[in-house]
């Protein structure tokens, strides 16, 4: 836990741009809002070991599901869920219930 916070702090200090940073200087989370059946922002950039947090502000359930099926975050209406990114690369994901909802996570080493 501590190392992750430290890593996030270092990343922020290094000036890594991320949506989470804009919301709170000490926030290691990269936030994605789900509203009107879409992921916003559709592309999010993080570093290995950092987490993405999705918040579902729609009245219906969604998921954030890796395109290769390797992970899934269940997102009930009004709830949040997160996933720590462990591998560098560019990963697509989608909502399993609404396959036209898609997003991308770019994970820097």
């Amino acid at each position: 836990m501590t190392w992750r916070r430290l890593a996030a702090g270092v990343a922020l200090a290094a000036g890594a741009a991320c949506a989470g940073a804009a919301l709170g200087a000490a926030d290691p989370l990269h936030r994605v809002e789900i509203k009107d059946v879409g992921f916003a922002p559709p592309v999010i950039r993080v570093r290995v070991g950092e987490a993405v947090e999705w918040t579902n502000n729609d009245p219906v359930a969604h998921t954030a599901t890796a395109s290769d099926g390797s992970w899934e975050v269940d997102l009930q209406p009004g709830e949040s869920g997160r996933r720590e990114m462990q591998k560098a690369g560019t990963f697509g994901y989608l909502c399993r219930y609404h396959p036209n909802m898609t997003g991308t996570i770019v994970v820097a080493p």
Binding site: D36, V37, D58, H98, M101
Partner: peptide
């Protein structure tokens, strides 16, 4: 309006 967004997704699906 929110319903419309959801149902447009259903239409595409």
């Amino acid at each position: 309006q929110t319903g419309l967004k959801i149902f447009e997704g259903h239409e595409q699906h």
